[in-house]
């Protein structure tokens, strides 16, 4: 048992970190914003924490707090212009944001180390810290589901005009979703920095964005369990397929196509829908029968 845990610790750590990023992405999609900014916000958080630790020797707790603030602050500022855009245009504007963060991190070599990366970050976040952060995030999202806020997000996502007539302030709610998402992304960015010894700008670029998005969409983008399931499958699957060596990505691609074709709303959402449909279809027991 002990051996097993040691062998799989890196995998568990990776899963916990990416779970955080997946929920950061999930919150904005829940509120009806097609934002892909999570990768950029995570990058801002990671570099804030990393630079504070390496250049100023700041305490990790301070670094984490600063990264969380920086993430949510950047997200709030970003939400103002994004309120003017809708749908795919939001997606592309946020891709542009991710790319800007990437190029600035790459260019600002004296501060960030540029393409060589930011190295020698003291490792202060172990599996325990990651687990606490991931569970906290999971609880936050699960609790939000049950409040007025969660219902407001649902209303905005399903029909913006209807939500507005019901008195939901759309701009304010979406800004709030952004700030939350930015805070979570910044927090986990900082944890990534304090976990991995080193950072490089390419870590938070386009491929990372696509990976996070696929966790949420494959798992299911409406139910709370969706990102959990999606992240678990997409992190563990390549590991299971390790014996296939060079064909690993091939199998991964085929799996993505098959799963989304047969469970088109994502795994959790499709299963929940199917379950509900079955319950509704079941005939009521007749009253007079013995």
């Amino acid at each position: 048992m002990g051996q097993w845990i040691i062998a799989y610790t890196p995998l568990v750590d990776l899963f916990l970190l990416h779970l955080g990023f997946a929920y950061a992405q999930y919150i904005v999609l829940r509120a009806g914003v097609f934002s892909l900014a999570t990768a950029g916000l995570a990058g801002i958080g990671a570099y804030t924490a990393g630079v504070l630790a390496v250049k100023l020797g700041a305490h990790p707790a301070l670094g984490v707090a600063a990264a969380t603030l920086a993430g949510s602050g950047a997200a709030l500022v970003l939400s103002l212009p994004l309120a003017r855009l809708r749908g795919v245009y939001q997606a592309i504007a946020t891709v542009a944001f991710v790319q800007i963060v990437y190029s600035v991190n790459l260019w600002a070599e004296p501060v960030t180390g540029g393409a060589m990366g930011l190295n020698n970050i003291p490792r202060t976040a172990g599996t325990g810290v990651l687990a606490v952060a991931a569970l906290g995030t999971l609880y936050l999202v699960w609790a939000m589901e049950r409040t007025r806020l969660g219902r407001a997000f649902n209303a905005i996502r399903q029909d913006e005009a209807m939500a507005a007539t019901l008195g939901v302030d759309i701009v304010r709610h979406q800004a709030l979703a952004f700030a939350l998402s930015g805070a979570i992304a910044g927090l986990f960015g900082a944890l990534e920095a304090y976990h991995a010894y080193a950072l490089d700008p390419g870590q938070f670029a386009f491929p990372f964005l696509i990976a996070i998005l696929s966790y949420v969409i494959l798992g299911g983008r409406n139910s709370v369990a969706g990102p959990l399931i999606g992240t678990a499958i997409l992190i563990i699957l390549p590991e299971l397929a390790r014996p296939l060596a060079e064909n690993r990505m091939l199998i991964y691609g085929v799996m993505l196509i098959l799963v989304i074709n047969f469970l088109p709303r994502g795994i959790a959402d499709s299963l929940i829908l199917a379950w509900r449909a079955r319950r509704l279809a079941r005939p009521e027991p007749a009253a007079g029968e013995p």
């Binding site: 696509i210 998005l213 696929s214 983008r221 091939l250 691609g253 085929v254 993505l256 196509i257 989304i260």
Partner: peptide, 24 residues
């Protein structure tokens, strides 16, 4: 996906899958 009306988000995943297959 088009038949079930989920091509907007689902299509992102399946075309990433296709891209991985072709690239591998």
């Amino acid at each position: 996906l088009r038949r079930s009306g989920d091509e907007e988000f689902g299509g992102i995943i399946s075309s990433i899958g296709a891209s991985l297959v072709i690239m591998t």
